[in-house]
């Protein structure tokens, strides 16, 4: 398999750059999602951005997709934060309702179109190979914004994630911080929507973070590892789908291939993590027997 040759084609190069930036963005936010156990909340966000994408597209065509997604993402981020803090309904049930009803709105809207199936496919699974220069810039801007936001808020975010009561006791405004967190997730979904679609973005968020967590117990390593794994998955996935499509007559959808490669990378990381833990344990047992005794 050729890992470099396909990217001499401009459209493949743009796709690669887009996925590498997305990998870094989703990897960073994904670690927080993982630690806060917000996977389902994030999944809800990916579905609720969908009607925004459809409305944006119907109103302004391809250019409207980003702004439609942004509007829907912002609204849902607020909605989910309020919902989580009120807890009127069981959170899971409430999320499932929000998720499906907004998704249904999107489906109903898109079904008005004559090109129903092809539009739906595009919104759900993205079109990574048609990414434009302008979309690259959008993704890069969102990435810089989110990274800066998380860097500035890293201490309150860490304290809130680890110990919510302690954070509130220390005067941190937990509700506001949760809103920022949900907005960050929404921004990832918005940035990724045209490239990988609303459905597959959840994999970009969760899988690299989970793989990085399996490899390390330290946040200073977990975050860069998640970014690296996300970017690596994008590169290998694109190369694999190109190879299969061009040389073997197998049409592999790029978005789906990227996700599958990420899952394989997770498998490798989980295995490596298990080995590392086993070795670490036996080393601890052999190395410091007197410590065990005094505990």
């Amino acid at each position: 398999m050729s890992l470099f040759e396909p990217f001499q084609l401009p459209f493949m190069a743009r796709a690669l750059v887009e996925l590498v930036i997305l990998g870094v963005l989703a990897g960073t936010v994904g670690v927080l999602v993982l630690l806060r156990r917000l996977a389902f909340v994030s999944d809800t966000l990916t579905h609720t951005v969908f009607p925004g994408v459809v409305i944006g597209y119907l109103m302004a065509g391809q250019d409207g997709v980003f702004w439609g997604a942004l509007a829907a993402g912002a609204v849902t981020a607020v909605l989910l934060t309020v919902l989580a803090h009120r807890r009127r309904v069981s959170e899971d049930a409430a999320l499932a309702m929000v998720l499906t009803s907004l998704f249904a709105i999107g489906v109903v809207l898109v079904s008005q179109r004559t090109a129903f199936t092809s539009d739906l496919t595009q919104f759900l699974f993205g079109r990574i190979l048609t990414v434009t220069q302008e979309q690259l810039v959008q993704t890069a801007v969102v990435t810089v914004l989110v990274a800066a936001l998380l860097a500035v808020l890293r201490r309150p975010l860490m304290l809130r994630t680890f110990d919510p009561e302690g954070a509130a006791a220390a005067g941190i405004r937990v509700g506001l911080l949760d809103l920022v967190m949900n907005v960050a997730v929404a921004l990832v979904v918005v940035a990724a929507v045209q490239a990988v679609g609303t459905i597959l973005v959840i994999a970009l968020l969760i899988v690299p973070a989970a793989a990085a967590r399996a490899l390390s117990d330290r946040l200073v390593f977990i975050v860069p590892l998640a970014c690296l794994i996300g970017a690596l998955g994008g590169w290998l996935g694109l190369a694999a789908s190109y190879e299969a499509s061009v040389y073997h007559g197998l049409r592999l959808a790029s978005g789906g291939t990227v996700v599958l490669v990420l899952v394989v990378l997770y498998g490798v990381a989980a295995l490596a993590g298990a080995v590392r833990r086993r070795v670490g344990l036996s080393r601890a047992r052999l190395g410091t027997p007197e410590l065990e005794m005094t505990r």
Partner: peptide, 22 residues
């Protein structure tokens, strides 16, 4: 959460966050 990837000294340092700032 016992799975949280944070070291003992990092937890203690959280006590200084208010004085250190962001």
């Amino acid at each position: 959460d016992p799975d949280f990837p944070v070291s003992v000294e990092q937890v203690v340092m959280m006590g200084r966050y208010r004085k250190i700032g962001w």
